[in-house]
């Protein structure tokens, strides 16, 4: 396990250097995208997102935003459960060359395989830590599809500094979620006297 810094957008070599268990502080641009956004990216294949998502970090998050006199501020912005994007994520990684997916709870074999084949990582943020994580957002650069999707589901383009995460799925087929699942399954069998 190592402590690392990462700048986003990023490249394949950088994400391939990361391993499960590494603690990664992210600095740069992250783009929120959750259920509606993922369905939209896969179904509609919008071209205008291509330059924005090239090498980018996507953040599974539906933040609470406050409208200020000028622009927006982030009130609360923790990760949402990533598993719901499992049907879409592999496609999004491949099509848009997304390099980093930030969320919580981990994702399944399809996404893990896409990370390995195309060079991407899954970074786990701390679920529920919405205020502390919002504190790492230094600037709200833009928002896309706000009217159409509503505030929680829109694409918020955020500048973060030192945003804390843990690599739980790497670009080499490693998944902390699969490991913990398997180990805890054995423990459950022992507790229930089934082994």
């Amino acid at each position: 396990m190592a402590r690392r810094e990462m700048r986003t957008p990023t490249d394949e070599a950088t994400v391939r250097a990361l391993r499960v268990g590494d603690e990664v502080a992210v600095t740069g641009t992250i783009i929120t995208a959750r259920d509606t956004a993922h369905k939209y990216m896969v179904d509609m294949r919008p071209a205008f997102l291509r330059p924005i998502l090239q090498g980018a970090a996507i953040y599974h998050c539906g933040p609470i935003m406050r409208k200020e006199r000028k622009g927006w501020s982030v009130v609360a912005a923790g990760p949402t459960t990533s598993a719901r994007e499992e049907p879409y994520q592999a496609d999004v990684i491949q099509r848009y060359r997304v390099r980093v997916v930030i969320g919580k709870g981990g994702m399944g074999p399809k996404t893990l395989d896409a990370c390995r084949r195309h060079g991407a990582v899954y970074l786990h943020a701390v679920g529920g830590a919405a205020v502390t994580l919002a504190g790492y957002v230094k600037k709200v650069t833009d928002v896309l599809k706000l009217e159409e999707f509503g505030a929680p589901e829109a694409f918020w383009i955020l500048e973060v500094e030192g945003f804390p995460t843990v690599v739980t799925m790497d670009a080499h087929g490693g998944s902390l979620h699969a490991e913990v699942e398997a180990r805890s399954h054995m423990a459950l069998d022992r507790l229930l006297g089934r082994s």
């Binding site: 009130v75 609360a76 949402t80 529920g128 205020v131 994580l133 929680p152």
Partner: peptide
Amino acid sequence: PGSNARAALEIILRNIEDARSTSAPICQDT
């Protein structure tokens, strides 16, 4: 000490304090 588990709980404890002191929602999913 040094585990991912402890680091996660540390952020959670900080978040609880941050939310209380700034009167902001602990989690964005209210």
